[in-house]
Amino acid sequence: MAAKGQPYPSVWARPERRRREQPALSREQIVAEALAILDAEGLEALSMRKLGTRLNAGATSMYSHVTNKDELIELVLDEVYGEIRIPLPEGPDGWREAARSSAHAVRAAVLRHPWMASVLGDIALASLGPNVLRMSEDMLTLFETSGFTPEHAGTAMNTLIAFVMGGTLSEAAWLAGLARSDQDEEQWMARMMPAAEAAVLPYPRVRRQFDALKETGSEQSRGSEFDLGLDVLLDGLALLRTPAAG
């Protein structure tokens, strides 16, 4: 909910509070500790009270930067987006490799922080932060300097991000579930295998997919499917380039 005088419910839209004196904590300290809790224990473990205890800070120091948990999550999400680097294409035909590197950078950031799967459904949490806006600007630059019109550059960026997030958030949710169960993928697969093998017996096409997964392993299979889907997507995006771009 937006604070009084705030046009939009976002930490980035809220006027910065005037401080009579230097607060004991910086925003960077708060965000770093919140990110550490999220990575180690998941979204459910994060609370303003727990964060204050970890930082040995009182409410005044905390709330001079964030008013609630939603604002805190906004700040941490933007910190994660700051890990992502979008390369410029090398030469007129380098857009494809640059786009591929960008997709892998976004995927890697989400998988490093699997708790993101629980919050990225709320677009307001990640739309106004400086790092996500910088990432968007860099990705539009990638496409616009590679023969895409501004309109098609926007389409290409949105399509690429939708593809990456669509698959990767499912991966992240899977990894977060594994972490809560205190099992790794091999342990989980070993426990699930007898029941799964019996369940897929009447379905020959599903069974072939399942047998292939057993051969390659879950992690390798996810990576291969991502790469194949990305190739197909980039083939389609190539059709949006202007004829002069080749």
Rank of each mutant, 00 (worst) to 15 (best):
M1F: 04
K4F: 13
G5K: 02
Q6M: 08
P7H: 09
Y8N: 10
W12T: 02
R14L: 09
R17D: 10
R17Y: 07
R18W: 10
R18S: 11
E21I: 05
Q22W: 04
P23S: 05
L25I: 02
S26D: 07
E28A: 14
Q29A: 12
I30K: 05
V31A: 02
E33D: 09
L35M: 08
I37W: 00
L38H: 05
D39E: 13
E41G: 04
G42N: 00
A45D: 03
A45P: 03
M48G: 10
R49D: 14
R49E: 14
K50V: 11
R54M: 08
G58C: 00
M62A: 02
S64G: 13
T67R: 14
D70A: 13
L72M: 13
I73K: 03
L77D: 07
L77W: 02
V80M: 06
E83C: 09
W95E: 01
A98K: 00
A98I: 01
A99C: 09
A99L: 07
S102W: 00
A103D: 06
A105V: 08
A105T: 09
A105D: 04
R107P: 01
A109V: 08
A109L: 10
V110H: 08
L111I: 04
H113G: 06
H113R: 12
S118H: 13
V119M: 03
G121H: 10
G121F: 06
D122W: 02
A124L: 15
L128C: 07
L128N: 00
L128P: 08
G129H: 02
P130E: 01
V132N: 10
R134V: 03
E137K: 15
T141C: 10
T141V: 10
T141Y: 06
E144H: 03
T145Q: 11
S146Y: 06
G147E: 07
G147S: 09
P150Y: 00
A153K: 01
T155W: 11
A156N: 02
M157H: 13
I161N: 01
I161P: 04
A162S: 15
T168K: 04
T168N: 05
L169F: 06
L175T: 09
A176I: 04
L178K: 03
A179Y: 00
R180E: 12
S181G: 05
S181H: 08
E186C: 03
M189L: 11
M189D: 00
A190S: 12
R191Q: 14
M192V: 12
M193D: 14
P194H: 10
A196T: 11
E197R: 12
A198K: 15
A198G: 12
R205M: 15
R205H: 14
V206D: 10
R207E: 11
Q209W: 06
D211F: 05
A212S: 11
E215W: 01
T216N: 03
S218Q: 08
Q220L: 03
Q220H: 08
Q220M: 02
S221N: 11
R222N: 09
E225D: 15
D235T: 13
L237Q: 08
L237D: 03
A238I: 06
A238H: 05
L239A: 15
L240E: 04
T242Q: 15
